[in-house]
Design a protein around this nucleic acid. Structure first.
Lengths: 340, 340
DNA sequence: TGTTAGCACTCTTTTTACATGAGTGCTAAA
DNA sequence: TTTAGCACTCATGTAAAAAGAGTGCTAACA
């Protein structure tokens, strides 16, 4: 559909604009190495590219900038996978080299690396808990009124849930309670906790002693408490480095939406498997219409466990970002795999 | 030193400027209710106040704005404690009303309330762990190579430390280990963990079985690992609302410094007891020289446990902020007290 | 027929000039 | 001691002019 020459011109415009953030004129394009035609010819091609909607002008007599459709085409057809530099590879390797047994730390470091290497904002959605099973439950009494239940999942995730305890419960009662819970709930998928807890466990507990009822109610609430998704962000201030964001209102809008963790998590969660690119208006949220979001997933076996993403201006280094996300997501998947 | 009239004029200038962020001219001051002299008189007083360094001009023929020295004087001598509105009291009461047994949540909510009510950025330094004692320790094996130690402190704080386990350790070994640890370490102040661990516990463990040596080394590292201070911030985007921060570079500088959690924590930690006000250049960090930081402490018994603070422009509603911090810090102290 | 040089035209950006208005400092009168 | 009056300063706003970058179109060229 596009001629070879049009492709060349489009590529130059996008590559240039990604680095300079300035409109590109025909003269500038003509000066490029692999371009061997005059500015006038390029102007003709540019007029065509504009008619097709791949580039646009900022005003009547300005150079051209890529349109969102242009970026889309670029990402879909023009992108040459960029090799990571040796230095980048080293940084990444170092991150994963240390003996790491705590998933949270791995994720935090990954987020840091991503934002450091790109100057964009990295967002990582932590592994889904409900894909895992309960490994063990512990209850530790804090006072005569409060206790904390500690849940450990098969993926080594530890979670603390505080709850009230009626004064009538003593230490040995609690111990019995824990034993029953462990006996019945160990190995149960987190997602099935609720039905188990309502069903047999409730029965068993109440049969054991009617004193348990109040405790059971408190505990139930604590255990079933919807736990917030873990969202790791890094490099939020990187956005401020981008020239398209030297308007305080834009910053304000974007930061506000980034603070809505639930919403962001949702976007990442519903991103499909593999690398996905959302450019400008393709994003669900109005506040992100000047941005591009690139997501990749990591998994354990067949199950998709979480998402890593980079958020930047639509004028993004797509090629490099995609390569980076590819590498990082594979690393995360491997790390995850090696543990379980 | 200052005449009654000068005090009045200074007060009006600061009060006005705090609300409008605009230089105040003599005419505007003369129009104020409790001012009964002409603009010309006020101009004379203003010239004196400027000579004394309490106010300054933005340019030769502008109105006056408070200098940092002016704010300092205002805070030290002119401040009338502002009563919180009923609505504010309600919001705060609501925050603490719910039955709360988890300190982290209380702190998070306090931070939220502070930033919501003030439109500044709230920063809370969580309670110091080393003031507490170890209540219980649990070890849960995650795989044949990894385990997690769960520390519960006397304040109900729960902490997870992941560590490696040599393959030679089996479940009953681990159990023995936990028993020894609990027996010897329960009730020990966190700050003394190290010496205990190096001394008698090491001896005991190694005597028990030389197999424990490797495990002991891993565990020791995990337990003694310097845990990062918990810093809770809320309302970071509020800064963007302040007219003095519509310069992207200023935002950038301030946000960068806020991301340095260690540094921020240090500043809060070394703030003295009670309410402290740092105005502009009085702040340690260069990046905060356009800001004021107001801190208050909360405590358990005699021991100062943590700090709550508000960060905003030097043009801050000192009176209201101080009242708010007073109330909140007392509430936190009470909550803390009621638990232990 | 595709390519290119030439040129008028458009629109932004920068500069300059000028008018306006807020506010001051000073002087002199009350 | 206070205040009215006035010249002066400086920021802000507006308008016009100049500069510059880049386009679209036409006509010539290969």
């Amino acid at each position: 559909m596009l001629t070879e020459r049009q492709l060349q011109v489009l590529q130059v415009i996008i590559d240039e604009f990604i680095h300079t953030a300035q409109p590109i004129g025909s003269r500038a394009i003509a000066k490029k190495e692999d371009i061997s035609f005059s500015p006038a010819t390029i102007r003709n091609e540019m007029a065509d590219l504009e008619d097709l909607g791949f580039i646009e002008k900022t005003h009547t007599s300005s150079g051209r900038i890529p349109s969102e459709k242009g970026y889309r085409f670029y990402v879909d057809h023009l992108l040459s996978p960029s090799r990571l530099s040796r230095q980048e590879m080293t940084v990444i390797a170092d991150t994963f080299q240390r003996e790491m047994i705590e998933f949270e730390k791995v994720v935090q470091k990954s987020a840091r690396v991503l934002s450091d290497l790109t100057n964009y904002t990295s967002i990582i959605l932590g592994p889904r808990v409900f894909e895992t099973t309960l490994k063990q439950i512990q209850i530790i009494s804090l006072s005569d009124q409060a206790a904390v239940a500690i849940l450990v999942t098969s993926t080594g995730h530890v979670e603390n849930r505080y709850f009230n305890v009626p004064a009538s419960m003593n230490a040995s009662d609690l111990e019995k309670l824990v034993n029953i819970l462990n006996e019945r709930l160990t190995g149960v998928p987190i997602i099935q906790l609720q039905e188990k807890l309502y069903g047999e466990v409730a029965e068993l507990l109440l049969k054991h002693s009617s004193d348990f009822e109040a405790t059971y109610n408190y505990l139930k609430a604590a255990l079933l408490e919807e736990q917030p998704v873990k969202l790791y962000m890094d490099g939020k201030t990187n956005i401020l480095l981008q020239p398209e964001f030297n308007d305080v209102h834009k910053i304000q809008a974007l930061y506000s939406v980034m603070e809505q963790e639930e919403e962001m998590a949702n976007i990442l969660r519903t991103s499909g498997e593999g690398i996905k690119v959302s450019i400008g208006q393709e994003n669900q949220l109005d506040e992100m219409q000047d941005c591009s979001l690139i997501t990749a997933t990591y998994s354990l076996g067949e199950k998709q466990m979480g998402t890593i993403a980079l958020l930047g201006p639509t004028r993004m280094e797509y090629s490099r970002v995609i390569s980076l996300l590819n590498v990082l997501s594979k690393r995360l998947t491997n790390t995850f795999h090696s543990w379980y």
